[in-house]
Design a protein around this nucleic acid. Structure first.
Length: 422
DNA sequence: TCTGGGGTCCTAGGACCC
DNA sequence: TCTGGGGTCCTAGGACCC
């Protein structure tokens, strides 16, 4: 899709059609998308909103509506699947289709491309661009070339003449850092990479990446379109290998108590998603980012896989304390659980002295309650007054009204907002 | 008002085992 | 009497993608 989030966010607002529009990206954030009017000013997805604002002060800001994005995305993917079941969904706004099996029924790949573009335009009111080629990587580059609202076909005999003039940064796997390394070697175009000895390339960027770039630069890409490979929200895909959550604070924080409350919030969020997905994991990792943006991660593997909020939280707190931060100002904190396996494959070892009904059962009760009564229904007690603070901020109460908290220790008890459900 | 949040994969070193 | 080779697991950091 072309400027997907921006297109969807403005499709029912004709008054925004001819003005620069920026989607998402509030305080301390990055923008999600920008329409082509805004891009003309140099605004790009992923750009800090402050910078976008500087580049294009007149842009209209539109909030992200993820539910709507998902709905439109699913409708578009349905259109793809009517062409072929061989659809690999890469993200909400991008997919690969292997149409070899569809040409007899639907015509040439170009005809299929134009058909899809027309249907998506008519049904969803947004435009998209299509690259047609004999491999995934070339099709992807061709689609980029086709934007906005176009089709680019790269026939097999034109692959190298299409690829070689492109900037190395266009290649999959070449980001800012790798591009700088290649530029230092005097490699600016894809053709330069293609004509560099493999070993030289591998010395510069590593064995695996060097091999991949050399292949891609010659259009060698035999990977098949694989339906359901990537896990995109709502499309299934392979099981996740890790799940995590992180949060950038509104302002940098040096207070252990505040930081650990966030760690608990994140642990609960991750654990709940794990329980919904039916997975458990053994390695808990904690990420902290300091005010100067330097970032540390620490990981600890526990004896048995868990999906229990308190166990993840306890491991994360140990990692945090082991850092020995002396009131360093943190910009971000994150919790991730890795090495996920199906929960059904985990058999818990009974521990002497441990209650056989414990936090795991409590978590499940909390899950049931929040499903029925909403997220605020049951929370760790240590998070309750903060939740109240949020309510105040969003409604009428004084934002500063917060009660004193006792200690930084163990926000263990599960509290309830209403006495009815415990 | 500089730099989100969700992920994956690779590399490299050390511990440990056979 | 001075140090092999292969494998796995764990940790930390980094790069990248959407």
């Amino acid at each position: 899709m072309d400027a997907f989030y921006a297109s969807v966010a403005t499709r029912d607002r004709p008054e925004l059609r001819d003005v620069p529009v920026i989607v998402g990206g509030g305080y301390r954030g990055v923008i999600l998308s920008a329409n082509y009017h805004a891009r003309a000013y140099g605004v790009r997805s992923g750009m800090p909103s402050t910078r976008a604002r500087r580049l294009c002060p007149d842009a209209v800001r539109v909030p992200a509506d993820h539910e709507l994005f998902g709905t439109v995305s699913r409708a578009v993917v349905e259109n793809f699947r009517r062409v072929t079941p061989q659809v690999e969904v890469v993200s909400l706004d991008e997919a690969f289709l292997d149409v070899r099996g569809s040409t007899r029924r639907l015509g040439t790949p170009i005809e299929i491309a134009e058909h899809l573009r027309a249907v998506i335009h008519d049904e969803q009111g947004i435009t998209c661009s299509v690259g047609v080629a004999a491999s995934i990587s070339v099709a992807k580059l061709a689609s980029r070339r086709a934007k906005p609202d176009g089709v680019v076909v790269v026939p097999p005999q034109e692959i190298t003449s299409f690829l070689h003039p492109l900037d190395v940064g266009e290649l999959y796997g070449v980001g800012e850092k790798t591009q700088a390394v290649l530029h230092r070697l005097g490699l600016v175009t894809v053709g330069d990479v293609a004509h560099t000895p493999l070993r030289t390339l591998q010395r510069a960027v590593g064995e695996g990446l060097g091999r991949m770039l050399h292949d891609l630069a010659w259009g060698r890409d035999t990977r098949a379109v694989t339906p359901g490979r990537v896990s995109v929200f709502g499309y299934g895909g392979d099981p996740d290998k890790s799940m995590g959550a992180q949060e950038t604070f509104g302002r940098d924080i040096d207070d252990r108590e505040v930081i650990l409350r966030e760690v608990l919030t994140l642990s609960a969020k991750v654990a709940e998603r794990m329980r919904v997905a039916g997975v458990a994991g053994r390695t808990v990792s904690l990420t902290v980012r300091f005010a100067d943006f330097t970032t540390l991660t620490r990981a600890r593997t526990i004896p048995e896989a868990t999906d229990v909020t308190q166990e993840i939280y306890r491991a994360a707190v140990r990692l945090y304390d082991a850092l020995g931060l002396q009131r360093a100002r943190l910009r971000l904190v994150g919790v991730r659980v890795e090495g996920l396996v199906p929960r059904s494959s985990v058999h818990r070892q009974g521990v002497l002295g441990e209650r056989d009904r414990g936090w795991s059962e409590a978590d499940r009760a909390v899950d049931r309650a929040t499903r029925r009564f909403g997220r605020a229904a049951v929370q760790p007690a240590s998070l309750l007054d903060r939740a109240a603070g949020r309510d105040e901020a969003s409604s009428t109460g004084p934002p500063g009204a917060r009660s004193e908290r006792s200690t930084g220790e163990a926000p263990l008890p599960v509290g309830t907002k209403s006495s009815e459900h415990s």
